[in-house]
């Protein structure tokens, strides 16, 4: 239990070093600390709770397997979120392929994007907001989600979406503008 108390508030970087040395408890602390932001990143891309949970799990496994190649130039969280974004996009591609195969099998064509403001009129408030969010370009969606749901700075969002701080800010404000147009104020 001495080990546990020393793990009470170490930095991410200290924990990563312990993971490199094979410390399973350090992995658990990193999971406790970051699973929600990883989940929200995956959910912003996948727009589905179950898929986001699967992608979150795989993200941590892949991050821990790759931890020897994390050298600490970026924050661990930023590096982890980049892995999570990749994992979610990979899963999204798989799901889409599966869905398209199924639709071809039964001779039904995808319904298409359509007008989100028309499609969502009969849905609940939460479903409406999610539907409009889901129709934003990915960088806008991630910028809005990580800024509002997780309070990440524009700088960290920029690093997470492979972009600059200024670009993250612009993507955020364009996303908010679009949401205002489609949801009304």
């Amino acid at each position: 239990m001495v080990e546990d108390s020393r793990l009470a508030s170490p930095t991410d970087e200290e924990l990563v070093q312990r993971v490199r040395e094979g410390d399973e408890q350090a992995m658990n602390v990193l999971v406790d600390r970051h699973h929600v932001v990883v989940f929200r990143t995956c959910a912003a891309i996948l727009n589905d709770e179950d898929l986001a949970a699967d992608a979150s799990q795989n993200s941590f496994i892949k991050a821990f397997k790759a931890v020897a190649r994390f050298r600490g130039e970026a924050a661990f969280r930023t590096w982890l979120l980049a892995i999570a974004g990749n994992e979610a996009r990979g899963l999204l591609r798989k799901v889409k392929r599966r869905r398209e195969d199924r639709l071809e099998d039964v001779g039904v064509l995808p319904s298409g994007g359509g007008d989100p403001s028309a499609e969502v009129t009969l849905q609940s408030e939460v479903a409406r907001v999610r539907a409009v969010l889901a129709d934003l370009p990915e960088k806008q969606r991630l910028s809005v989600s990580l800024r509002i749901f997780e309070g990440l700075s524009f700088r960290e969002i920029g690093e997470t979406i492979d972009s600059t701080e200024g670009s993250a800010r612009v993507n955020y404000h364009h996303g908010i503008q679009r949401l205002r147009e489609l949801l009304g104020s």
């Binding site: 891309i45 999204l92 994007g113 934003l136 370009p137 990915e138 960088k139």
Partner: peptide
């Protein structure tokens, strides 16, 4: 980026002009 459940994103090409 690919977005939306069916990959049809009406706004995907409307990047902000100052998005570098």
């Amino acid at each position: 980026p690919e977005v939306g459940p069916l990959g049809q994103d009406p706004f995907a090409v409307v990047w902000p002009s100052d998005d570098a």
